[in-house]
Design a protein around this nucleic acid. Sequence first.
DNA 1: ATATTTTGGTTTATAATGTAAACTAGTTTA
DNA 2: TAAACTAGTTTACATTATAAACCAAAATAT
Lengths: 93, 93
Amino acid sequence: MFDNLDPLLHSQLRLGVMSLLMSVESAEFTFLKEKTKSTAGNLSVQLDKLSEAGYITVLKSFKGKKTLTTCSITSKGIKAFEEYVNVLKQYIR
Amino acid sequence: MFDNLDPLLHSQLRLGVMSLLMSVESAEFTFLKEKTKSTAGNLSVQLDKLSEAGYITVLKSFKGKKTLTTCSITSKGIKAFEEYVNVLKQYIR
DNA sequence: ATATTTTGGTTTATAATGTAAACTAGTTTA
DNA sequence: TAAACTAGTTTACATTATAAACCAAAATAT
């Protein structure tokens, strides 16, 4: 009847991040923070979790002299997102 | 961009329950337990929360000599479910 | 030059939530 | 009449989410 919803994706903030990353090549930390209206701390923690799971890659570099954190979704992340959406459809028909 | 997902519905078990209740007149505790593959304890707690929120009504009666708990979704619950689904679509496009 | 604020984050403490184990009360079966 | 089952509830614990507090460097104001 109901399959399990990937708990990593079943979280408002992480889902928002993944949703954004599904539609762009890559996104900066500050961009994700603005779009999701999250605090930096919360976002940082959730990006770590997605990264740990291999759903995204997080690249730290520099934009001029400022640190720059850039995130991209991985193919594993894309698969997981698509699967999550499919399972979700069992719930919301 | 992303509206908030009603935290009461953004829970696998509660969402499963609401999903089931959306498609039936009413459902017995044991029916919900089987369909959602939840433990009785967990289900009991989550039904309380949905009931507290006014999303469902919980009626206790008897089936022969056995206690019987019957749940139905309220109009408030239906609205909340529909709104949740709409918001969710912002995330999963 | 040097305080002060801002930017771009991370760490960590706390609050909120989810879950199952332990329990209650009554019923059926052996 | 004792053991096992049904139908749940309570409660203790584990997990998760979140923001406050923090850090380092850069930009700005004094």
